[in-house]
């Protein structure tokens, strides 16, 4: 149980490193990939902290965060489709 915050910190570092890809990514698809990876590592952080703190509400927060990541993905795809058609 001691090592859980370290795992959460490691996941946070992976999310921060993903920002580099957002900064450097040549195409919008790269940026969306990095955003999806950051969203998923956010969900993983919530799960780990939910166990570490014993607070079970964090699992619901992780579920909502997963749904938001899916919505962000569909929004990007919808706007990309509109740009291509116009």
């Amino acid at each position: 149980m001691i090592v859980l915050p370290f795992i959460a910190t490691l996941l946070l570092l992976t999310a921060l490193v993903g920002l580099i890809r957002i900064l450097r990514g040549p195409t919008t698809a790269d940026r969306m990939l990095a955003a999806q990876l950051i969203g998923t590592s956010g969900v993983a952080i919530l799960l780990v902290m939910g166990v570490a703190s014993g607070n079970r509400a964090l699992f619901d927060v992780a579920l909502v965060f997963a749904i938001l990541a899916a919505i962000a993905l569909t929004t990007f795809l919808a706007t990309a489709r509109l740009e291509r058609q116009s």
Partner: peptide, 10 residues
């Protein structure tokens, strides 16, 4: 696996 995915994306 998350670290591997992040290294992969970079």
């Amino acid at each position: 696996f998350f670290v591997a995915g992040t290294v992969g994306i970079l």
